[in-house]
Amino acid sequence: MFFSPFISKPDSVAQIMLKVILALIPGIALYVWYFGPAILVSITLASITALATEAAMLKLRNRPIGPFLKDNSALLTAWLLALSIPPLAPWWLVVVGTAFAIAIAKQLYGGLGNNPFNPAMVGYAVLIISFPVHMTHWLAPQGLVLAELSFAQQLQYIFSGVLPPSLTLDAISMATPLDTLKTHLHLEESVQQILNMPIYGHLGGQGSEMVALGFLIGGLYLLASRIISWHIPVAYLGSLFIIAAIFHLVDPTHYVAPLFHLFSGAAILGAFFILTDPVSSPTTNKGRLIFAAGAAFLTYMIRVFGGFPDGVAFATLLMNISVPLIVLYTQPKVFGKKGKQS
């Protein structure tokens, strides 16, 4: 016996997750274009690990495996995590990070819909705290370093850690633009001097700014198809811009221009794909604005004054903690309880 309503909109969790995954593709395509296909290896590796871990955990928890594997949520976590890890990271790093994200951050909290933290960001945080060195071996955009690895050589390095005999790791990898900026600012160089370095492009890092643009396109698709609401991306990017602008206006030699912050690191990816994770973000619109603004503030503080190369992951996790409180205090008025009527 089932009851009204007897009709429902043809929509499902799996479709929503799939659309979010598809929206990542422009960014990934540009990633491959500028940095080579190594990222595809980590995405594949992460996907397999995520599905295997999810299945194993569901089995241990005595829950049905089929419907949950098909909901695509584990895949999405895997893709987001893979995009946060350097493509040349050893295979076990991807596997450990993904397994932790799925097993601990998602399934141990009760699985789909019950995780208070964004699983991908938990995975990232664990990796950057446990293996900080491995997490800094980013690929340079093509044409910027002395030597480039062929895809076969990249594969070999990822799975065995062996480089071609003539090369060192430093010759093929480099720090991220944000990291480089921070390092050089410590060397008392001015922002203008640093930005003249070849790794910087028009807005952010060479290549990485284009990848960010790709994610922006995907994000706009998510907005247009109403998978996410505008509140989090707009509030996040807007707040980040304003905070960065204030610092930049006060002291332009030490604080880089706001657009650089938007197009560096994981700001765009975070604004549209990570902070908008429905499970770990607020459910009220006002709450979303507060949540995103808080995340932007924390991101900027960690980037500029903190010890980590990027702040998106920790900002997300810190704001995740405060979600229940934010939601509690931003409850909208119910129909018939608005205005001054008693």
């Binding site: 499902s12 969790v13 419907p67 949520s73 789909l112 819909g113």
Partner: peptide
């Protein structure tokens, strides 16, 4: 009126 699909957990999507 197809029978309802099995329910999955709420993902707080706020639709």
């Amino acid at each position: 009126f197809p029978p309802p699909q099995p329910a999955l957990p709420c993902i707080r999507c706020t639709r």
